[in-house]
Simulated assay, not measured.
Amino acid sequence: MKMRLNDIRPGKGARKTRTRVARGIGSGLGKTAGRGHKGQHARAGNTHRVGFEGGQMPLQRRLPKVGFRSLKKADTEQVMLYQLAVIEADTIDPIALHAAGLVTSRAKKIKIVLKGEINRAVKLQGVLVTAGAKAAIEAAGGSVE
């Protein structure tokens, strides 16, 4: 049998008829139109803000605040010891670190952390250094100011 354009139909159950709410008893959603009897949600204009619990203290206010988010955290940046090998200058300061792309311009505090190793003498100025990183820099013949 050949298929014709006028025989094309959507698959069975592909197109469901829209529920006509509040259109008589035969619709199955007549009378109260699925809103139940009385109460805030049965009335017109039944909106209230998200999280509102009818005057009861809402859940997001009953639960305790958790944690602490430091506002200074964004100002501090860490640089690993092995990353200093990228910088060719003998004196490393915040400007040199920014030029090498290791820190952003908003960094107010920069700390060198012991991770990896350095095998050349460098002079650090204007940056914070951990005790382990300082020992590694001085062992390589460098200095920290």
Rank of each mutant, 00 (worst) to 15 (best):
K123W: 02
H41R: 09
L81R: 00
E88A: 14
I25W: 07
V79P: 02
I112C: 02
K109G: 04
A133W: 01
H37S: 08
K134N: 01
T91N: 03
R120H: 14
T104R: 05
R20G: 02
M3E: 02
V86Y: 08
K109D: 12
R9H: 15
A44Q: 13
V66D: 06
K2T: 14
K115F: 11
T76G: 05
F52L: 13
K109P: 02
A136R: 05
E145V: 11
A22D: 15
A42W: 07
L128K: 08
I25T: 13
V66N: 04
T104P: 01
V129C: 09
G101M: 11
H48G: 04
V129K: 00
G24S: 04
N119L: 06
N6W: 05
H98N: 08
D93F: 03
V127N: 03
L124F: 10
Q78I: 09
D90S: 07
A131P: 08
K73Y: 11
V79K: 01
P10A: 14
K115I: 13
G101S: 09
K65S: 15
L128I: 13
K12N: 11
G36C: 01
V129W: 00
R35E: 07
M57H: 01
I8L: 15
A42V: 07
K38Q: 11
T17I: 08
S70C: 03
P58L: 08
V79A: 00
M57T: 07
V122G: 02
Q60N: 14
G11C: 08
K38V: 07
E88T: 12
I95W: 03
V50W: 05
G28M: 05
G36T: 01
M57L: 04
G11Q: 13
I118G: 00
R9I: 11
G101H: 06
R9V: 13
K12A: 12
T17H: 06
I25H: 06
M3D: 06
G116I: 12
T19F: 00
D90Y: 02
G132L: 15
G36F: 03
R43V: 05
N6H: 09
G45N: 14
G45M: 07
F68S: 10
K108Q: 14
K72H: 12
K123T: 10
G36P: 00
K109F: 10
R35L: 15
G126A: 05
D75H: 13
G141N: 09
N6Q: 11
G45L: 09
G116E: 09
M80A: 09
I112V: 12
G132D: 15
I25L: 14
S70L: 04
K12H: 15
V50S: 04
R18L: 11
N6R: 12
V66F: 03
K2N: 14
N6M: 07
L5G: 13
K111D: 06
Q78W: 14
Q40S: 12
V129P: 01
I8P: 05
V103P: 12
T104L: 05
A42F: 15
K2Q: 13
R61P: 02
M3W: 00
S70G: 10
A131V: 15
R23Q: 15
